[in-house]
């Protein structure tokens, strides 16, 4: 399982101000620039990761993550609670990514997709191959399935949390994740990296 969303919230949900315990969300709503900077720093990597996994290239994902943060700062009043912050940010991210892909369609149409670039920091070269393989497999999934799979398998959401985030019934989430896993595995089997390049036991057998 991936990181539990609640642990993410606990990591960044509170700030002490003058001996008072004020949540980070409250401080942001109050316009505290230090709180905003902290929120931006804590969430930027997550938003970038989501943008990448939802199909953007690194430069696009940077723009998207920045856009999500700016939108969040303008609409923070609509985030009802600290516990909802992660799912609220994901909802914004999926819309921003969707818009970004739509607006860049002509570029892809003219220039093509181009070779995939590594998006994350890695300590080993094999990790780069694995990252590219994962992204390639995700990109072949229907968007709705990919979102459900990312939330539950990467971000560690429960089915109910994913359902609330995506605005669909929990049963539908389960169905999408099941289909997504199946498709992802099939893609993985077809597209898995050459083991010598990847240097990993999970490669071609």
């Amino acid at each position: 399982m991936g990181v539990r969303p609640h642990s993410i919230e606990k990591d960044g949900a509170s700030a002490s101000t003058g001996g008072e315990h004020v949540t980070l969300l409250d401080a942001c709503k109050a316009g505290d620039p230090a709180a905003w900077e902290r929120l931006f720093r804590e969430r930027s990597a997550q938003l970038y990761r989501w943008s990448i996994l939802l199909g953007l290239q690194p430069a696009e994902a940077e723009d998207a993550a920045q856009e999500v943060l700016v939108i969040a700062s303008r609409r923070i009043e609509t985030c009802r609670a600290d516990e909802a912050l992660t799912s609220w940010l994901f909802q914004i991210t999926r819309r921003v990514v969707s818009n970004q892909r739509r607006s860049a369609w002509w570029k892809r149409a003219i220039l093509g997709e181009g070779p995939p670039e590594p998006a994350f920091e890695h300590e080993e070269s094999g990790d780069v191959a694995r990252e590219l393989a994962v992204r390639d497999c995700l990109s072949k999934l229907p968007r709705a399935q990919a979102e459900a799979l990312i939330l539950m398998e990467v971000e560690g959401f429960t089915r109910e949390e994913a359902a609330e985030t995506l605005g669909i019934p929990a049963g539908t989430v389960a169905s999408r994740v099941r289909l997504a896993k199946e498709a992802f595995r099939n893609n993985w089997t077809e597209e898995r990296p050459v083991p010598d390049e990847a240097g990993l036991s999970w490669g071609k057998r």
Partner: peptide, 14 residues
């Protein structure tokens, strides 16, 4: 293996 690879990105950073 495929799911393990997917989950390995749960803490991936730019």
């Amino acid at each position: 293996a495929s799911l393990e690879a997917l989950r390995s990105l749960s803490k991936a950073r730019p």
